[in-house]
Structures are given as C-alpha cells and as structure tokens.
Write a protein that binds this DNA or RNA. Structure first.
Lengths: 214, 214
DNA sequence: AAGTTAAGCGGATTCCTATCCGCTTAGCAA
DNA sequence: TTGCTAAGCGGATAGGAATCCGCTTAACTT
C-alpha cells in the first residue's frame, strides 16, 4: 500500500511490517511503549494492564488495543530490543553460537544461550504467558528461534522432520515450565541447563562430523 | 456420603484428598461438575465460565470458587474420570504400556498413549491452558505423568537427573504446542507422533537390554 | 437434644479484558 | 488551499475473574 505515483518516493517499507503507519499512530505506539515500560519498571508486570497503560499514556483503551492486540503482545514488544541483540548473536556473532562451528555445537550453544536469555527476561515473559499462552508462538522471537533450530537440526539430522522436531526441542523453554521449576519446585536454573545438556548429549553426538559449518 | 456416628464408621478418606468434606460441600461439588459438564457439552468450552456455571448450578459464584480455584482447575476436574482410566492403563494395564516390558519400550508406549490421550481431550485441555497456563502442572494428572516418566527414565538412564529430564520430555505435550501445531499450522497429529518417535529413537535405544521389567 | 464452632455459602464489589462505533484527523489530490 | 477519505482515536459498554465478608448450617460434643 506504499508507493504512490510521484517519481521521488523515498520512503521505504522498513521490515515488511504494516503497510505504512500514520504519523499519529507511530507517535502513539511510542507513547504506549514508554508508558508500559515505566509501569513495568516501577510496579512490576502485574501493573501492566491495558487500562493502566492507556491511562499512563494519556489515551483511550481502544487505541492501545489497536496497536497491540493484547497484554502479552505488548509485553513481548517491550523485549524487542533485547531480542534483536540475541538474534544477532546467533545469526552473525562469534562461534560456536554464531556461524563457523559444527551444527551440533551451535545447537548446544544456542539452547544454552536461550536458557540464559529467557532467564534474564523471565518475569516479563512469565507475565506475557499468563496473559495469553499462545502469544509466544506468534511472536517474531519464537519464529526466529524455531527457524534457527530447524536449520541446525536439518544439518545434523537430515532425515528428521526438523520443523516439528524443533518445536519439541523448544517446548521446554516456554515460560510455563521454567516458572514451574523455579517458583513451584525451587529447582535452580543450573539444573535445568544441565538437563538440557544431558538431553542433547543423548540426541546429538551420533554424527559429530564437523562438515560444512555456517 | 452419609455414614453417621454409629460404631461401624465405614467412610474412608478416599485418596488423601481434603481432610474430609462436609455433606453440603460434596453435594455442591457434584452440582458444579454436572452443570459445568452440561455447559461444556451443549455450548463448548468457552461457555464454561465461573459465572455461567454458578448460574447453571443455581448457586453463588463464591461457592464455585471455593470448590475450584479457577476455570482451568474446574475444566481439568471434568476430565478426571478419563484421566484415572489412563493412569490405570499405564500403571496396571497390559505391556508395553503397563508393567512387563523394558523401560525404554514402556516410555515409548507411554508417550504415544499420552499423545492420543491429549488429542482426545484437546478441546477441554486447550481451554484450561488458556484460562490458566500453570494449572496443568499442579494437576494430579501431570504429577502422575511426571512420576511415571521419571521412574522409567531412571531405569533407562540411571545417571540422568530424571526429575528435570522428565519435565523436558513432557513439555511438548502441553496443550499450547499442540494447539499451535494443529490450529495455527495445520500439522496433522501423526506428524507430531512421528517426531516424538524420532526424538525417542535418538535418545533411548543406546541400551535396549530388557533387564528387570516393571 | 442442645450448644458450639469451623466450614460453607453467595452475592455485592472491584478490576480487567475486549469490542464497538461515532467522531477526528493525517495525508493525499486537484 | 481546499476537500476527500481511509486510518486512527477513545470512551462507553458488556461480560468475566476473583475477592470479601456477614449470614447460615453441618456435624461434632456433652
């Protein structure tokens, strides 16, 4: 919907996002994110309700809902910056997390890093999951994780149904399980990482040839 | 549920549940379950709200909340009968699901059966998960599954941290992922089962000795 | 049978989510 | 500049979650 008729149309559709966003809409998006961020910092995740955000941002609830369909989406949007850093790390960063190491090593490194990443943003992700369990799967973050794991699995185990298998491997990283282990059972995160390590140790090393890395 | 004061006090605390339940409380629990079950059958899972159940059962909302802390707990309670049948099948039923087969075979059989079990009650479990993501982990059902998988893992892989590992193996069976695969991506359930099979195939057969079964 | 008390009861209440729809305005065209 | 129109805006509204607290009652005691 961009590209009008004039010859010098410079504006470019940034990332395949929405079909362009009106100026007031963009301004309000910022205001919403700022207000939400402030609420989160000052009063914790429970205080981030659509009503509270709208009030803090000085606008109607309808506007907040127009930008972010639900609380979970809004909360996950707050993590966007960190998420992009994480993505860069496993897409372009140094090995073994980034390209250059054998796929099996990269997979292990990725799941380790993912554990830390989720642990770091645990509170917000927990709140998001509680507000709307399915939001994570629809987030750009999860899609990227899944694509990455699928790719690595495909190189490690070409015979597998890597798409579904990647979902299975990522399932334990949903905030639900981590919350259960940490809060309800007091399991330290190191044990979780050790178990992930153990699981990979069982699954992966069958063919540890360091074929074409990248 | 009568059994008054006479010498022949037959009543027995069924399963270590609550420290006994007053007669009116028990009666209301039944009424709530019946009303909820009716709503579920006639109007689907979305219609099962605490308000609607209370109205259908002819009582106040507070009473419903007293018996079942939230919608998810109530929904899961509706599955209790089926859940007990499932438990009997893997605790006492015929091998390989029940005792008698090598642990690795039993684990595979269990995860297969669990897939079917969850698929069969998918709608309700999905609704429960949506209402309260953590409810499943606290349910008697999940605790039993976890105990069973832990036990089998311990026999297959004594060196592992079987408790955490069991959580990892069970994570894909949360309704969240299954909903995502089925509804959002149209993946048939057979593919899911095949991937589970594949995952086990990678993890387990290292030592397939049929040692002491049971 | 009557007394005692902890448990149960239930609806009023508060806060939230989510949607709807008439009003406003940015951004384009003439 | 002056319309025009699709997009955006926002508050009113509907309905559910969850809690609270004064009243009621089952069930044990004597």
């Amino acid at each position: 919907m961009g590209e009008a008729s004039g010859p010098g149309r410079v504006e470019l559709t940034v990332l395949g996002q929405a079909p362009v966003e009106r100026a007031d809409a963009a301004r309000n998006r910022r205001r919403i994110l700022d207000a939400a961020s402030r609420l989160l910092a000052e009063q914790g995740p429970e205080a981030v309700t659509m009503n509270a955000v709208a009030a803090a941002a000085g606008m109607g609830v309808g506007t907040v809902y127009r930008r972010f369909g639900d609380v979970a989406t809004l909360l996950l949007a707050l993590l966007d910056h960190r998420e992009q850093q994480f993505q860069e790390a496993f897409l372009d960063g140094p090995a073994p997390l980034g390209p250059g190491a054998p796929p099996a090593d990269r997979l292990r490194a990725f799941l380790y890093a993912l554990t830390d990443h989720i642990a770091a943003h645990r509170t917000v992700m927990l709140a998001a999951e509680t507000a709307s369990p399915m939001a994570l799967y629809r987030s750009a973050a999860y899609v990227a994780w899944h694509a990455h794991v699928s790719m690595l699995l495909h190189r490690t185990r070409p015979e597998a149904d890597e798409a579904v298998l990647a979902h299975l491997l990522l399932a334990p990283f949903g905030p639900g399980l981590i919350r259960h282990l940490s809060d309800d059972r007091g399991t330290p995160l190191d044990e979780f990482k050790a178990a992930v390590d153990h699981l990979l140790g069982m699954c992966l090393p069958v063919r540890a040839d360091g074929a074409s890395a990248d």
